[in-house]
């Protein structure tokens, strides 16, 4: 029997329910930050003196589907580790295609894509799987597994990484509690609201503490208030050292959270931030 209670889009008292960010759960802290408490992690700016090693490097990348025209052309940019970027552009500009290259769902038709210093075209399947485990993805349509419970969905990346589900359950539960789904652990995604699904998708994306977090229109299915909350969450992860790329066409959010933009226009990057960008 699973919980099928009322929606918790505005869960009073939950972490994500608050308008201002508070500390992330310990599962996301790990050993990456010297701060031991959530409050410390959120209140301290990330150290800007660390070397900003490139996490993503694109060089003259082109992408076409089959024999069709290029949907991405001559895309060149570098994302330093720990940076936060918006990926903007009109519908059909190529945002999702660029993200799919970033999360290694496909390879480039031409050019060079390097993630974590490794050329993805030359990487074998095992190496690609290893790279993918360092990436968290929030899909626009969530892509949750309806046959799994909320807690099993969130724990999926850990399970794939070979972690003992019993050992990691406490951390997953804490994370779900943090995103306001603590009361719905045994529910199935089909019983969740759009906002709850969104938060579950985010929890799944971050549970394995990815080095690179990609989100495709993560605010596309939620109201403005929840969109801001979600951005606070991404910001919190960014402050813990995660490289974040958010594809969005919500310009109000982009204005409210003044991080650099990668702007796509008809498959070409028309705005590329300076390489040195790490944290604002």
């Amino acid at each position: 029997m699973y919980a099928t209670g009322t929606l918790a889009d505005k869960p009073s008292g939950t972490r994500l329910g608050a308008m201002q960010p508070i500390g992330p759960p310990s599962v996301l802290l790990g050993a990456r930050t010297p701060c031991e408490t959530p409050h410390c992690a959120m209140s301290q700016p990330a150290p800007t003196s660390l070397p900003a090693t490139a996490v993503v490097e694109f060089e003259h990348v082109g992408l076409r589907y089959g024999v069709g025209p290029e949907v991405l052309s001559d895309v060149t940019f570098t994302l330093p580790g720990g940076s936060f970027h918006f990926l903007t552009g009109a519908s059909g500009a190529g945002k999702s295609s660029l993200l799919s290259l970033l999360y290694l769902a496909r390879g480039p038709s031409r050019g060079r894509v390097s993630l974590f210093g490794q050329d993805v075209v030359r990487a074998g399947r095992e190496a690609l799987a290893g790279l993918r485990r360092r990436i968290g993805v929030v899909f626009q349509d969530f892509r949750l597994f309806d046959h799994l419970t909320v807690v099993d969905n969130a724990a999926l990346p850990l399970r794939i990484a070979g972690r003992d589900p019993h050992e990691s359950r406490a951390n997953v539960v804490e994370l779900l509690d943090w995103v306001g789904l603590g009361g719905l652990l045994d529910a199935h995604p089909s019983t969740l609201s759009g906002g709850q699904k969104q938060r579950l998708a985010i929890a799944r994306a971050v549970v394995a503490r990815p080095k690179l977090l990609l989100a495709d229109e993560p605010t596309g299915n939620v109201d403005d208030q929840l969109a801001v909350r979600l951005l606070y969450l991404f910001e919190a992860l960014h402050r813990m050292g995660t490289t974040v790329v958010i594809a969005t066409h919500n310009m109000r959010l982009v204005e409210r959270f003044p991080y650099p933009e990668l702007q796509l226009d008809d498959g070409r990057l028309t705005r590329v931030p300076a390489r040195s960008t790490r944290l604002l």
Partner: peptide, 16 residues
Amino acid sequence: RDHIEILHVMGALDRT
């Protein structure tokens, strides 16, 4: 196929 693609994106090995 859809779910398999997601598992691949999460880093699942073919043998898994």
